[in-house]
Amino acid sequence: MNRPIRALLLIWLALLVVLGLGVGVALLELGTWSLVLNLALALLMAALLVAVFMDLLHAAPVIRVFALGALLWVFLLAVMLPVDYLTR
């Protein structure tokens, strides 16, 4: 439960660095590569926030299963929704 202050500060710094990277990638305007990299960096930031600021790292196993389940459902929507649009 008790996350050391140093870890929290480090995560905060890491978040700011990833934010800077994301803005940089966007400004380079690399087309599809920017899209992929920006989405990947956003996922990384989200993972850091959920793992440390929401403390999923120390949550009970069943909670981690729930988190995975929620992710799976987002994935279902993200995969099944475009099927129609990509094949029209």
């Binding site: 459902w73 279902l76 099944m80 099927v83 129609d84 649009y85 094949t87 029209r88």
Partner: peptide, 21 residues
């Protein structure tokens, strides 16, 4: 139940391939 919703839209203008899936 979550991956069958498109069967309500077979003739609504959805793509044929989505329909098959």
């Amino acid at each position: 139940g979550f991956i069958v919703w498109g069967h309500h839209m077979f003739v609504a203008g959805q793509s044929l391939y989505a329909g098959i899936l």
